[in-house]
């Protein structure tokens, strides 16, 4: 394993990013937003220079930087904005940028579904609730961060861990992956023929990976149990919500 200081390419941007977010988090009094944004930009450039996309197409590269950078920037703006409505809108932008990344990775259905569910329904509901709840303007306790230090540290430790793991797993082959648990022998499983991508064009080797039908085969073939379980949980949640909702006497509004 690499010792920690050798990972400076990851650690320095992460620390800078943490500093930036900590400085930008809303608090009483003035924020050092110039210094904070500078730190943030340096951190972003540092991360982008390390985690480069491997394809060499300028259009794809540009889109990747646009969506990736957009997602990170909107995420930071979302947690540092004082106005809850703007925070919700930044969240919508995070979702849209992520959908762009999905599209770049040839997952159009995932991207469209995310837009419909997150940007189209969930964030709309957030905005709806914020509009109803905060008609007199944001309350003071909403205008400053709760535990900025602890939150920043925890968030970036988590992010650093994820980046480290990705970096380590991307560096070498199977054996280079970090081992936290002793390797156990897994029984050989024959792959499900349903879930294998179908070959559309023999000559070019084009498959229907990522298309709607292959997602459908995958969801209702390999992951049938998980899908049904998630559906049941959602159904139970719906029934629970209806049961919990306050009832009015018949005929009274």
């Amino acid at each position: 394993m690499n010792p920690l200081p050798e990972q400076w390419r990851m650690i320095v941007p992460a620390a800078l990013g943490a500093l930036a977010v900590w400085m930008l988090l809303p608090r009483d009094g003035k924020r050092r937003w110039v210094l904070g944004s500078l730190c943030g930009l340096v951190a972003l450039v540092g991360v982008l220079s390390t985690v480069r996309p491997v394809i060499d197409d300028w259009a794809m590269d540009g889109l990747f930087y646009l969506f990736g950078g957009g997602a990170v920037l909107s995420g930071v703006m979302m947690i540092t904005d004082r106005n809850p409505i703007y925070a919700a809108l930044w969240f919508a932008l995070v979702t849209l940028s992520t959908c762009g990344l999905f599209l770049l990775n040839a997952a159009p259905f995932l991207s469209a579904a995310t837009i419909v569910v997150y940007a189209g329904a969930i964030v709309v509901t957030f905005v709806f609730v914020i509009m109803l709840a905060q008609q007199a303007g944001a309350a003071t306790y909403d205008r400053r961060a709760f535990q900025p230090m602890l939150a920043t540290c925890a968030g970036f430790l988590l992010l650093g861990a994820i980046l480290y793991t990705i970096d380590a797993s991307g560096r070498g082959g199977e054996d280079a992956r970090p081992q936290f648990l002793p390797r156990v022998q897994i029984a050989e499983v024959t792959p499900n023929p349903l879930s294998q991508p179908r070959i559309l064009n023999e000559e070019t080797g084009e498959t229907d990976l990522g298309s709607l039908s292959s997602i459908g085969r995958s969801l209702f073939g390999d992951y049938l149990f998980a899908v049904e379980l998630a559906g049941t949980v959602l159904l139970i949640a719906t029934i629970g919500a209806i049961a919990l909702a306050p009832r009015r006497a018949q005929g009274h509004l």
Binding site: P108, A112, A113, I115, V116, A119, S211
Partner: peptide, 17 residues
């Protein structure tokens, strides 16, 4: 576009913004 209708709905759901 393989998922035409889904695209229409996805974009249409943004119109509420």
């Amino acid at each position: 576009i393989d998922l035409g209708i889904v695209f229409v709905f996805a974009v249409g759901s943004l119109a509420v913004y």
